[in-house]
Simulated assay, not measured.
Amino acid sequence: MVNKLAVNHPWYKHPVIISATIINAFILLLALAWSGNPHELSRLLVEDGIVEWMQFLAFSLTSGLLGYVAVDRWKNGGMRLGVLVLLGLTGLVAVAALEEISWFQRILQIQSPEFFLQNNRQAETNLHNLGFGKESLHKAVLLKLILITGLIHNLFLPLLARKRPAVRTFVERFGLYLPPLAASIPYLLLVILSHLLIDHPRKGELGETFGAVHYLATVFGAYFVGVAYDKKPLFAGLDARRVSVLFTLLMFYLLMTGWMLSAGAGAIVTAVGAD
């Protein structure tokens, strides 16, 4: 049976979905407005810049949300496959968050161990910039996996599920969810536009930020208030709407916090062309 919240409140009208799209569109418009000023655009895109701190904050909160859902399901239904999948995703997203800021290395001013000095493209303590052939692990492998997984999860499976509802049921059986097309299509469109309209060696950071904000919104929407989700969410009815509005405020607060953190940490503008 389809979740009543998803039926009574169309996806495109849900405040969390709308807020994620507005935040991502604002970031792209900001990049376009600063595209004529290399210094300002670099401030947005470089290491410890606005978008990197946004990625860290969004991934961190998403990891916390996934972990909360996993523990709640564990307590109420025992250790099942869906719980294990959610716990795995919790750890994976947490690692992604820490990788974005090199595990606090630059903030704490910690020298990289010898292994990373020799094998990391930026001499940092992180995994995604490790050398992999002529490129980094990030460019050679991870970006391709993210692209394939993102298209399958955000476009192909949701489209297929519209004609075959059993697809959504199958996905949710493993503790996963499918984002609503009302969230996925704007997200994918913004990624495409960022690659076409922005001329900067690190323009790929925009797409990563869009993804971080997109998944923060859709993870909350699915598991907590039942947006495009058939299983019982953690909140329902009036409480779900109130919590959703509060969560949108938190999302905008994260954008402001990312901006302030970038100014406090001091964006590294010398890493042109870094991953």
Rank of each mutant, 00 (worst) to 15 (best):
V2Y: 15
V7C: 13
Y12T: 04
Y12F: 09
Y12M: 09
H14Q: 15
P15K: 04
P15H: 04
I18M: 14
A20H: 02
F26A: 09
F26I: 12
L29A: 11
A31P: 12
L32Q: 14
A33W: 15
W34M: 15
E40L: 10
L41C: 07
L41D: 01
S42N: 06
R43K: 15
R43Y: 05
D48S: 10
I50C: 06
V51F: 15
W53C: 07
Q55S: 12
Q55N: 09
F56N: 02
L57P: 03
S60Y: 01
S60M: 01
L61R: 00
S63D: 03
G64I: 03
G67Q: 03
G67I: 02
Y68S: 04
V71K: 07
W74V: 04
W74S: 06
K75N: 05
N76D: 14
G77E: 03
G78K: 11
R80C: 04
L81Q: 04
V83T: 09
V83S: 04
V83E: 06
L84G: 14
V85S: 06
G88T: 09
G88K: 12
L89R: 13
L92S: 08
V93D: 02
E100D: 03
I101M: 02
I101T: 14
Q105R: 11
R106K: 06
L108C: 00
Q109L: 12
P113F: 07
E114A: 08
F115W: 15
F115T: 08
G131M: 02
G133T: 13
L137N: 15
H138D: 12
L142W: 13
L143D: 06
K144M: 10
L147D: 15
I148G: 13
L151G: 13
N154T: 13
N154K: 05
F156C: 03
F156P: 09
L157P: 09
L160A: 13
L160W: 06
L160T: 09
A161S: 15
K163L: 12
T169G: 07
R173Y: 12
Y177S: 09
L178H: 07
P180V: 04
A183G: 15
Y187A: 01
Y187E: 00
L190N: 01
V191S: 13
V191G: 13
S194I: 11
H195M: 09
H195G: 05
L197R: 02
P201F: 10
P201M: 04
R202Y: 13
G207E: 10
F210D: 00
G211M: 01
G211F: 02
A212G: 08
H214W: 05
Y215H: 14
A217M: 02
T218G: 11
F220N: 04
V227E: 00
V227D: 01
D230F: 11
K231N: 08
A236L: 00
D239F: 02
S244G: 08
V245R: 12
T248A: 09
T248D: 04
L254W: 05
L255H: 15
A263D: 08
G264T: 04
A267C: 05
A267L: 07
V269R: 08
A271H: 14
G273V: 02
D275Q: 10
